[in-house]
Design a protein around this nucleic acid. Structure first.
Lengths: 264, 264
DNA sequence: CGCCTGGTTGACGCTATTCAAAAGTCGTGG
DNA sequence: CCACGACTTTTGAATAGCGTCAACCAGGCG
């Protein structure tokens, strides 16, 4: 089966299509590329720090993350990859990755060879723009995280993370009106948020007690989006998911989607 | 005078040349682009948050920064632009900037129109690669900062910032063997480091007392590079300044450079 | 001279960390 | 079925790191 017909590839195609000039021919060319489906167990390394990045991975199912481990042994997760996200754009353009990537859950990934992707990007302007756009969006997302890590409290960061994850899951078709899958352990959340697992636990307790969220059995339910977004200072603009002229207010519309879980 | 003959453009050209396939024709094409030299006073806005980014700025002299101001009024600086750095790559590819940019000192910038740059990138593969590479390097740099902000202590972050700034200034030809210009106020450093100005002051006092650095009259002198880099856990790899096969150890070689100050 | 910006210092308080331990959850094997 | 171990969540108590508030000093400039 051609990869683009896999239902889980929808998120990836949606990312590509956000580039305004992407044409059908571009997608056809990409569909024809040689690919391989690869599975990673939870905690498996997708690529190591310093890896040459000969392969570009697209997450189809499951969650992956960039990780950096300091000498002290503490770990920071500067980026999460959800369904549809491309993992290894930096290595694609730089020929080396500064940051390892690991699977957080079981991950199914679509694997392209770097050389083939490069050839495709050379020949197809629409694909080129789409990939560069994804790189720029990744920059915008990490920038927003740096701002949160530098200036937001534990509570604000947590609220922001949950808002971002829900928004991204929604965009990938993996959310219901009020919630989505949330397979991260509290320790992994701590590594994203720059906190300890203990403090993550207390912060979550607080948010639960206030009726902002429910988080149970790997599933996040947002009980009060307006309050949560306000607590986070969340504005989805930096994710660049909008279809229109790149403007989007806080808030969202719960619409027409069905129950499509991720990693289930 | 054609901009590429300006002595201050050397840093920009050096950044471009780090892309392996950049040819003379590419540089010639870029040299021929219509440009304008624009000066910004300290604290002037180069572009605002949400700006469409019709112009791409290249810093020739002075320091600029990306800034994000939260509702609480606190400010975070997720990126600094030094001599030779391109300011506005995100808007170039996304058509909108999520983050304002301001001049921290007096800044002299080379201004290209976005449309002209896009046309050039379309026609010249070498330029295209070079610009995309710069975007990827910016991603790598912000990622490294996110890691520091999340997991490093005040002291480690400060040491890391000073190591990075010195290394970048050196690469731009603006450093001597032991030091470089450092025009940031302690409050601006605090906004980079995610700290308060008071704590920045105390952290600097500590590092001075230990003989790691001297910081006086807008000038940084690194008294013990090995100790400072160790305190920071600094490895310059993420800056992607290397000429060779993208590998570079900690440490550096003090060499052949003269006294070329920035903003003097 | 007075004002303004930037640097310095002290006292105090809060946020998040650290250390420690207990309880819940899951898969595995007897 | 229960026992077991590994992992995760939860809770408590003590502490450290950094923030807050406030004051004072130094230099530059109108």
């Amino acid at each position: 089966m051609i990869w683009s017909q896999r239902p889980m590839a929808a998120g990836f195609v949606a990312h590509l299509r956000r580039s305004p000039d992407l044409g059908v021919a571009d997608l056809t060319a990409l569909s024809g590329a040689a690919t391989e489906i690869r599975n990673f167990e939870a905690h498996a390394t997708i690529f190591a720090e310093g890896d040459r990045g000969d392969r570009v991975h697209v997450v189809l199912e499951g969650w992956a993350a960039r990780v950096k481990i300091l000498e002290s042994g503490s770990r920071q997760i500067p980026a999460l990859f959800l369904s549809g996200d491309v993992c290894g754009l930096d290595a694609l353009y730089l020929g080396r990755s500064d940051c390892a990537a690991v699977a957080l859950t079981r991950v199914t990934a679509l694997v392209f060879s770097r050389d083939e992707v490069r050839t495709l990007l050379d020949r197809h302007r629409g694909l080129r723009d789409a990939f560069t756009r994804m790189l720029a969006v990744e920059l915008a997302a990490v920038t927003q995280w740096a701002v949160c890590l530098g200036r937001a409290s534990a509570r604000e960061r947590m609220a922001h993370l949950l808002c971002e994850l829900f928004t991204r899951m929604d965009a990938a078709g993996g959310a219901t009106a009020k919630g989505c899958a949330m397979p991260l352990t509290q320790e992994e959340m701590a590594d994203v948020l720059g906190l300890t697992a203990v403090h993550v636990n207390r912060t979550l307790q607080g948010m639960r007690a206030e009726g902002l969220i429910t988080l149970r059995d790997q599933r996040l339910t947002i009980e009060d989006w307006a309050l949560l977004a306000r607590a986070a200072g969340f504005d989805a603009g930096y994710l660049h998911l909008g279809h229109g002229p790149e403007t989007r207010a806080v808030g969202r519309s719960a619409d027409h989607r069905g129950e499509v879980g991720i990693g289930v």
